[in-house]
Nucleic acid binder design. Structure first.
Lengths: 151, 151
DNA sequence: TCACCATTTGCATACTTATTCATTTGTGTT
DNA sequence: AACACAAATGAATAAGTATGCAAATGGTGA
């Protein structure tokens, strides 16, 4: 019966090291379950097991982020148009001033677009700090952001 | 450079669904990393990623210690292993990218350890800015942090 | 600069896992 | 019992991953 075999698989995976499906097949056979690798592949899928550096493991009980595929947060241009107030540059940094509460959305949009010149962003309530590799790139980013703000 | 590619892989795996190594290869290529599946297999092993029903996932090193024996706050090494995604350096600064919500714990751990090279830290939601006295010290800090991330 | 050594990478291929298709098995109905 | 139908399984094979080995790359000291 399939469900008894599933129980046995859970137990084997929980209490012993199972490196691959053929090893699992042999261990199951010793317990009286004689099935092929194909069936085990299906069982593992059904049991939602993961395979990692230490063999197969049971699905983690933690809350796990059900994060799915977003089809797209708002663009930097959009969010800047909504919240942006001023752009300044100093050394390798660009400082974006926004309306209160606008910094987080602006930073999120910047993060999402992953501009090559941008190493990282930090957002407060109304200020976003954009960090670049060097002053030249910071200027480049400043220009681009400013163009969006002006548009 | 290998480490930058590792950073990119961690980020892709953390923020998007990666079903297999060829998909990862294509996503990396779009970011400028052109390598073969063989290299990615090695990277995945090095990064200790697991593959489960929802594609590859980062190793879950839950910092939530059920055991009580841990006196002080978690170390930088621990908290980086849990939340760290990428390390970059520019001028006298080091930018640490983390999973959402991970910046504060990382910064707190850094503050607590009081590294001599670190003048201060600023944390947003998923980015920590570490400020050093000069580029040399920033590189030193970057190396140290990166070693912890790769461990 | 050049030579040297260690690391990293790609290629080819071995190994492992998933899937298709046909068959068997189980179950309820007449 | 015989049938019909769905679920489960095996065999073959496609799809995906890991690895030995040689070549390329990169860092280091003479």
């Amino acid at each position: 019966m399939k469900f008894e075999r599933h129980d046995a698989i859970r137990e084997l995976v929980a209490h012993s090291l199972v490196t691959n499906q053929d090893e699992l097949r042999r261990k199951l056979r010793r317990r009286g379950f004689a099935v092929t690798q194909a069936t085990l592949s299906r069982d593992i899928h059904a049991l939602r097991l993961s395979k990692g550096p230490s063999g197969y493991v049971l699905p983690s009980t933690d809350v796990g982020n059900g994060a799915a595929e977003n089809d797209g947060p708002p663009s930097v241009a959009e969010v800047l148009a909504s919240f942006g107030l001023r752009i300044r540059q100093a050394m390798n940094q660009v400082i974006v001033g926004t309306m209160m509460g606008g910094a987080q959305p602006v930073a999120a949009a910047l993060d999402f677009e992953e501009w090559p010149e941008v190493l990282g962003t930090i957002a407060g309530d109304d200020t976003v700090l954009v960090i670049c590799a060097d002053p030249r790139r910071a200027t480049e980013v400043e220009m681009r952001l400013r163009a969006m703000l002006e548009s």
